[in-house]
């Protein structure tokens, strides 16, 4: 196989300009950056929540830690009549007052028997309504992919405006994560008769709870922007 490597490199080198790395870098820098998508609102919380709705997600907001666990409990009760939920070994999740809402999270990787999981987004992107999850102990990929309902908590302080800001944010991480997942909706398919169906393999429902100092009218504005009111 080393022969293959040598031969492929030789063939590609035969077409190259032979420019120095410095010249290549400066040529790349000279190409500038591409445009990003326009945001639906100048207020980031409303804009993010509107894009989540447009991507097929559902939303709620919580201004305190207690309200956050209550929002999770409300969702769990309404959808599954349960108080069980899977969660990664995330310190921010562990620190939430789950007992105040009568919830019993099971910390670890979700299995096929877990109906609902909760994750804490490392960051989120307003431009696309995406949450950024870094795979690892705090956020095992199984928790994002195996359950029927995936609840993601997003701190409004962690909102990044565009995908370019997300790139910069990744560049500033101290360690290179194994997996960086931008999740922007439930698992879906249109492979049968071009009919959009949720729950192809992963979550059928994707619920975002935006937490922190959120403007009072953000949720309502988001629903208006998404054309849901």
């Amino acid at each position: 196989m080393n022969d293959a490597r040598t031969e492929i490199y030789a063939r590609i080198r035969g077409t190259a300009t032979g420019a120095s790395r410095q010249d290549i870098d400066s040529a790349l820098h000279g190409l500038g950056s591409g445009p990003s998508a326009p945001l639906p609102s100048i207020e980031p919380c409303a804009a993010f929540l509107a894009n989540v709705l447009l991507q097929g997600g559902s939303i709620s907001t919580a201004r305190s830690r207690k309200a956050t666990v209550q929002a999770v409990a409300k969702y769990l009760f309404e959808r599954h009549r349960t108080h069980k939920i899977a969660a990664g070994h995330d310190q921010r999740l562990a620190a939430l007052p789950w007992r105040d809402a009568g919830l019993l999270p099971r910390f670890g990787a979700a299995g096929s028997n877990d109906a609902v999981s909760v994750s804490f987004a490392a960051a989120a992107v307003v431009e696309t309504g995406s949450v950024i999850l870094l795979t690892g102990k705090a956020s095992p990929a199984a928790n994002h992919l195996l359950v029927e309902d995936h609840i993601v908590l997003v701190d409004c302080e962690a909102l990044l405006s565009t995908l370019d800001d997300a790139t910069e944010w990744v560049g500033n991480l101290r360690h290179r994560p194994r997996g960086i997942q931008l999740i922007s909706g439930p698992s879906s398919t249109a492979d049968i008769g071009m009919t959009l169906v949720s729950g192809a393999h992963g979550p059928k429902r994707w619920h975002i709870i935006l937490t922190g100092e959120i403007p009072a009218e953000a949720e309502e504005e988001a629903r208006e922007l998404a054309g849901l009111t």
């Binding site: 991507q55 990787a109 309504g129 795979t135 194994r178 922007s184 909706g185 698992s187």
Partner: peptide, 24 residues
Amino acid sequence: TTGQPITSYTSFYSGPARDGDIDG
């Protein structure tokens, strides 16, 4: 492709699971 702004899943994978990871 589909007219969406982004797909439901966009992932970047760097390599194998690290020590302490519980999946991957």
